[in-house]
Design a protein around this nucleic acid. Structure first.
Lengths: 336, 336
DNA sequence: TTACTTAATCGAATCGTTTCGATACACATC
DNA sequence: GATGTGTATCGAAACGATTCGATTAAGTAA
């Protein structure tokens, strides 16, 4: 079943069928109805390969996501999917494996499939301005604030202020009297990661309060409970007198909480816990975990709005920074 | 940059370039090297729209997933992605929104994009044999055991035995002396859901031990902590003397655990908790939650193997049923 | 009547591949 | 020299859509 068959059966020309299907050009109401009836009867769906080939640009949007099993991204992905489909565009979710360069992967996809837009979710970006320029299609970076040595006019972004957010969390713990606060995050070799940016905020808060930064209090760990658990155990074994643990994700924080509780210590009696993200699982942990909450769904929503503005011809890139929120649920307490 | 340009620059014919790129037909070593050099120099990537159009079949695999934010599926998705890319095929992850018919959505995609294979993950399937037949491309259903009124030779599946697994969990609780065991799962209107199948196992265990089935002990709830929390609260307010809660997912179980603990009751002192899936977050809950663990990654792996066998020409559909495992971590206890 | 406008429709050309039948050349065989 | 057999290559014809210039019919103005 192709457009030719539909044209023949409906008794009209090929281009008329095309115009009916695309709502382009003029078609009389009777002809339109006739064609649509045949389309419906035969359950005809236009071949998108042919369509995209001719148009030299498809209407496919790609979502490149690093860390697809992260529940925080899960909710964002759902919203992206919903918004894109609402606009009648197909979405391709592409998982970028750890260690794979997301920009290079995107470049390949663009050439192969004539993408019309890309959302980058998670991942690390230490690429040159030239590399971003070469993409050649509208794109939005979510969950990353600023890129080093890249002119902001070259890309759009939707994020929270990671430095400021980590600063606020650390400040909060300090204000409760904590001095020995450890920090857990993922630090790959690349520079521009959320982990490294949150570390900056952590350091800034310490510095402002005259607390010396101790690298022994910082642990590298994956964004997963098991990894957080192991890292917290390592930290506790160092006997540094830690009274608070701040993690760069709730998944890590859950692991640290387990490490504390399973050692016979109490939260927040012995150790205070603060996470990051605002996932449901942390709220329903016992005790409920304090966290820096990100408005993930709204961020996804705005990312799509920006992307479609760009696709629609808007030339100015935009940068939206959302407010994160310190959510106090009782896993931190004031100490002497 | 298209194949014509590459041909011209390399000084060979169009079809020769095509043969080099597809490793089909004979090409002399010198010509091959010449062409590949040009391809590399210009960073040429063949247009997949044109390729798929000509071949009337693409090599795209689609993963249709319902419940994309479920961390259990997250890990399975990662494995599917890994395996598909390992074989050099592109993967398209398609989130199916709640209430959308996954088979109809797949049908659309097949016509549109000439898919060469589909993995269905999650979702409910009460479709007719005819509907599955009409798909016309190889496909594998994961996480569903058997389809009502559909000949098993029509589809492939990879799953655990949901009835048996729920039976085992319920049996375990009964063996610990529990009589008032509640069950929480999602029961949409469709019949063939994992929730309804697990309910069968739950009922079977009760029956075998002469415990009367009480519908008041069964609550409908989403696969999320918040929903499990609310459902558990509702159950507790009924004052039915519940001593154990069995949930059809760990996400729900985490919600029920929170409901118990935040009421001032203890786990497993007052109420025993058993979940389902085996996600990390449940292991790192405090206390660690007992669960029926599914080998998600292996299931994903085998699904892909079956799919590629079918794509490779294998005509016989297969049904693989994995063993689930009752994991005891201490959130259940023996009562009088 | 003629000229001009407008609305509705048509089909050829095109997008960038793959593939198949044809071709060209070298070398062996008779 | 005629014929046959590989080997390496070529280009035209699809695949199924969109689009643009051409065409037809009907209506309107002069």
């Amino acid at each position: 079943m192709n457009i030719k068959d539909i044209a023949k059966i409906s008794g009209v020309g090929i281009s008329t069928v095309s115009r009916v299907l695309n709502n382009s050009g003029v078609v009389s109401d009777t002809t339109r109805a006739k064609v649509l009836a045949v389309v419906k009867q035969y359950n005809y769906v236009p071949n998108s390969n042919a369509r995209n080939l001719k148009k030299t640009q498809s209407n496919m949007i790609a979502l490149m996501v690093k860390g697809i099993s992260n529940p925080f991204f899960g909710n964002m992905m759902k919203e992206v999917e919903r918004q894109v489909h609402l606009r009648g565009y197909p979405l391709m979710i592409q998982h970028v494996e750890d260690g794979v360069d997301e920009i290079a992967a995107a470049m390949q996809l663009i050439k192969e499939k004539n993408l019309c837009g890309i959302i980058f979710m998670g991942g690390t970006y230490d690429h040159s301005e030239e590399e971003f320029r070469q993409l050649g299609v509208p794109f939005v970076l979510t969950t990353i604030t600023t890129l080093k040595d890249v002119d902001p006019s070259v890309y759009s972004s939707v994020s929270i202020d990671d430095v400021q957010s980590a600063y606020r969390a650390t400040n909060y713990l300090i204000s409760l009297g904590h001095r020995n606060i450890c920090f857990l995050a993922r630090f790959p070799f690349k520079e521009n990661t959320i982990g490294s940016r949150r570390l900056l905020g952590y350091k800034k808060a310490l510095e402002e309060h005259g607390i010396e930064y101790d690298p022994a209090l910082v642990e590298d760990c994956e964004y997963a409970p098991s990894s957080g658990f192991a890292a917290a155990k390592r930290l506790m074994n160092k006997n540094l007198g830690i009274t608070a643990m701040f993690s760069a994700s709730d998944a890590i924080a859950i692991g640290t909480a387990k490490a504390v509780l399973s050692s016979g210590l109490s939260i927040p009696g012995d150790i205070s816990i603060v996470g990051f993200d605002g996932i449901e699982m942390a709220e329903y942990y016992h005790p409920s975990l304090d966290t820096i909450s990100q408005p993930g769904v709204e961020m996804a929503h705005v990312s799509i709005e920006i992307l479609f503005d760009l696709i629609g011809g808007e030339t100015a890139n935009r940068h939206v920074v959302f407010e994160s929120m310190l959510v106090k649920r009782g896993s931190s307490r004031k100490i002497n």
